[in-house]
Design a protein around this nucleic acid. Sequence first.
DNA 1: GTCTATAGAGTGATAGAC
DNA 2: GTCTATCACTCTATAGAC
Lengths: 208, 208
Amino acid sequence: MSNSTKDRILNTAIRLFNERGMAAVSLREIAAEVGISPGNLAYHFKNQDALIEEAFHRMQAERDAILSGVQQIPSFENINEQIPPLLDIAQRYRFLHLDTVHLFRTYPEIAELQRSYFENSIAYVRAVIDHSVGAGTFRPEPRAGQYQRLAHTVWMLMTFWLEQQAVRGRKQLDVESVRQTIWDLVLPNLTEKGKKQIKGVYARFPVH
Amino acid sequence: MSNSTKDRILNTAIRLFNERGMAAVSLREIAAEVGISPGNLAYHFKNQDALIEEAFHRMQAERDAILSGVQQIPSFENINEQIPPLLDIAQRYRFLHLDTVHLFRTYPEIAELQRSYFENSIAYVRAVIDHSVGAGTFRPEPRAGQYQRLAHTVWMLMTFWLEQQAVRGRKQLDVESVRQTIWDLVLPNLTEKGKKQIKGVYARFPVH
DNA sequence: GTCTATAGAGTGATAGAC
DNA sequence: GTCTATCACTCTATAGAC
């Protein structure tokens, strides 16, 4: 995070996009806010696309850092630990999450990357469930397709939580609620062994 | 649904907004598509805001018609029946649902109406749960706050299902999946009495 | 009701001096 | 690297003829 003009432009752009949305912020405004000329901004970022793409790749890098820090054995403890930092990233790059549809329409390459990330996320949750069944901490699937739907619902809660809060006029990001909601979905599927295991393990982000 | 110029403008605008999003469609384009001049369009709708607001009120009226057709006794059977028509409305006015954040930023009065509708929806699901507990078909709340979170999750599934499909590149609206997902959440909370009751009742949209 | 014509305010992008 | 100046374009909204 140096103090180069390029970084100052990017940080300012992200801030303005977060405040007012991508469509409402012009390159002139960004330049004015940074304190440079529009021509200078164009020197560092050829056009608006370059700015958005750079921001997206920076967010992607932060997400990858969280997800690659995962334990070897996939478990709900991993997911539990990852929820707060992932929501924090979503919050800091919220213009990329709240304007998803506009983003997807305007930037097809970013859409492709984001889509892959989404599918991988669902598959990841599903893998955790399957592993838990294998380990005897999760009961066998009660209804056909239910665990695929469960993985999907967990992904939806994570992905649309920010937007849900925004449209309901909640300013403060409520990380605790999304965690509790996900646990509501998980707990009914735990075996006795599974229930025992979660006690004592979740010190940092406990299950009440 | 008359064939007046005003209605033709509105229908064309809704179609174009659905195809390409509000921000990408200009008044000129709408006028050209209808086959009238921009000046004529301005005669019927003072500006873009008037167009969006009219579309929103029309959707609101359709939603109210679904929800006022409810049985006196609130039950999950009502919700089960309302899911398909409500998703159909969301589909036909999808530009209002997919661009929610932009809509909220640009049209504060619409935002206020939509927000009320959201809160009422959550309260409605919550009321169905509470009534079911009282009627002995739903077990007492397992964990503190769980039924409020359940109502909220059901609302999220309904509200963001369309957007979820759009960002994952699914064109066809999958109504059956959202119904199954909601039943996955409901079933673990049913008492024996509740389980018996749902059999035979859900003829049109069965629970598998 | 419907049209043409245009005012007026933006925008993204670029050329060229320093 | 940074600047000024400007081109070429798009949009909304309105004035006024028919």
